[in-house]
Computed example of a mutant assay.
Amino acid sequence: MKLQALPVTAEEFAPFGRVHAMVPALQPEEPAARLVVSSGDGWSDVYTANPLISTNGSLGMTLGSGAPFSTRRMERHLGTEEALFTAGSPVVLAVAAPTDAGQPNAADVRAFVINPGTAVVLHQGTWHDACHGVDGDAYYYWMATCGGDGGSTWTDVEDGPVHVEVGVSAAGGNRG
């Protein structure tokens, strides 16, 4: 199965989590994603009005290979939300909505481009792959509660793999 990555928007990403576009003009209507903006002489600042995730979280950093890529396995976290945001280069995230099933199905997988200045927060139980760089290998940060739930378990994608590609329109967006 082949899949084209889409630019991440609050509406398209809603089944999987919420979007924090840290550019005030792009701020979604959702109260949980509300931003606080301030500025001074030579600087401007924006931060989330609410904590990024609903539990105390650890900050991690991962290096993902570049697109295109194949999603063969995914993980989910039943005890924590997970925030993901780029360390400078656009990344692609493959996800599938939370289900009671023991594994995600390839037909349910969607892929989104996350540009610098945007963070996504996955609902608890959302299936997801590691992020991959749009233009080659890329680092990204994640925040989640670690430990206590036995750690993440990577599970095969039923009827997979899913081959993910990035089109020009998806990669364009706000690239910092």
Rank of each mutant, 00 (worst) to 15 (best):
E75A: 13
E82G: 10
V92A: 03
A32S: 15
S39D: 04
V92C: 04
S54M: 07
T86W: 04
L35G: 03
T99G: 06
G64H: 12
P68Y: 04
R18L: 14
A107F: 04
R34M: 01
R72F: 09
L84Y: 10
L26C: 01
L35P: 05
T86V: 07
P24V: 00
G60P: 11
P90Q: 00
D45Q: 09
T86H: 04
D41C: 02
L26W: 03
M22S: 00
A106C: 03
D41W: 06
L93Q: 15
S65C: 11
A96I: 15
T55I: 07
T9A: 05
F69T: 01
P90K: 01
V95S: 13
L78V: 14
L93K: 12
P68L: 02
E81I: 12
R72H: 13
R72D: 10
F85L: 14
I53R: 07
T71W: 05
D41N: 07
N105Y: 07
T62I: 15
P24I: 01
A49Q: 07
A10N: 06
R34K: 06
G88W: 06
P90N: 00
V46C: 06
A107Q: 08
G88T: 07
A96C: 15
I53F: 05
T99Y: 12
L59S: 09
R34N: 05
G79A: 14
V109A: 08
P104C: 03
V23S: 02
A111H: 08
A107W: 06
N105R: 10
A97D: 13
R76E: 04
F13Y: 08
E11K: 13
A101C: 08
A32V: 13
P98M: 12
A25C: 03
V91A: 08
E81Y: 10
G79Q: 14
T71Y: 01
F69C: 00
A107H: 06
G79H: 15
G66Q: 00
A106P: 05
G79Y: 11
G17I: 15
S44A: 08
S39I: 02
A83V: 02
A67M: 03
A87I: 11
V19Y: 06
S38F: 04
A111V: 08
T71H: 01
A87V: 12
H20N: 01
P51C: 00
A49G: 06
V95T: 15
S58F: 12
T86P: 09
T80P: 14
R110Y: 05
D45E: 07
N50Q: 04
S38G: 08
D41H: 04
A107N: 07
P104R: 05
V95K: 13
M22H: 03
S89V: 03
G64F: 09
P51N: 00
F13H: 08
A107R: 11
R18T: 13
E12K: 13
